Amino acid sequence: MFHITALYAGLIGLFYTYVSLHVSLGRKAHQISMGDGGQSDLNTRIRAHGNFSEYAPITLILIGLSEARGAPAFVLHGAGVALLATRAANFFGLKSSTGYKLRFYGALTTYLLLLFLSLAVLGHALF
């Protein structure tokens, strides 16, 4: 049960560990334990971490609910791959001064993914 969701939750967990470590290493480099201390690099790392933690959990929940309701495997894998790709696009887009397009398409795909999964889950709940 929830084999596909578990796969993507594990992969997202590994990526989240990397994103979290990225913040910790930035804090250590700037010797800042709280906030960003006015360091734009650290602020960017914190925002990447925050953005990840804002979108990944709800999307994983929606994938899990879709799996529980019997969504086809290709839909679940598509959603899982899209989740990983959008989080990577945001993270690497923020790290680059030219990453605006990566972030734009990552955000757009995130919104479409959330909309699709939310409507699918609601459709199953209502009918």
Rank of each mutant, 00 (worst) to 15 (best):
G70H: 05
I32E: 05
G37L: 06
V75E: 14
L65Q: 05
H49D: 01
H49S: 03
G93L: 05
F91C: 03
Y55V: 08
S96R: 11
N90Y: 15
T5W: 09
G50E: 06
S24D: 03
A68C: 04
I58D: 08
R69A: 15
L21Y: 08
V19W: 01
R87V: 00
A107L: 13
M34R: 05
I63L: 15
T59A: 10
S20Q: 05
G80E: 08
R47L: 02
A107N: 06
F15E: 08
K101Q: 14
K95C: 06
R69G: 15
R47Y: 12
G80S: 13
R45I: 01
P72F: 00
A107G: 01
L76Q: 11
S33T: 11
I63V: 15
T86H: 00
L62I: 14
A73I: 14
F74L: 06
L14M: 13
K101G: 09
H22Y: 10
G13Y: 11
Y55F: 10
A48T: 11
A88E: 06
S40V: 15
V23A: 08
I32H: 03
A89N: 00
H77L: 11
R103Q: 15
H77C: 11
L102E: 01
A6R: 12
I58E: 14
L102V: 11
A6N: 10
T59D: 06
I46T: 07
V23P: 07
R47F: 09
D36G: 08
S40Y: 08
L25R: 08
T44R: 12
A9S: 12
L84F: 06
L83M: 15
F91T: 03
L108P: 02
A73W: 13
V75H: 08
G50W: 04
A107H: 02
R45W: 00
L14V: 14
F92Q: 08
G99S: 03
L84Q: 02
H30P: 02
D36P: 00
R103N: 09
A88C: 08
G38Y: 05
V23G: 06
S96T: 07
D41F: 05
R69T: 12
G26N: 06
F104D: 00
D36S: 11
A29V: 10
L42M: 01
F74P: 02
G50T: 02
T5I: 05
Q39D: 14
H77N: 14
L60S: 13
I58V: 15
T86G: 00
P57H: 08
I12A: 15
L83G: 12
S20A: 11
S40T: 07
G78R: 07
A71K: 04
S97V: 09
G64M: 05
A107D: 02
L60M: 14
S53F: 11
M34T: 06
T86L: 03
F52V: 03
A71L: 13
G37I: 04
T98W: 09
A85Q: 10
Y105M: 05
A82F: 09
H77M: 13
G50S: 04
A29L: 07
Y105D: 13
G35L: 01
L76T: 14
T59M: 11
S66V: 14
V19I: 14
L65D: 04
A56M: 14
Y55Q: 07
H30Y: 10
A79T: 01
T17L: 11
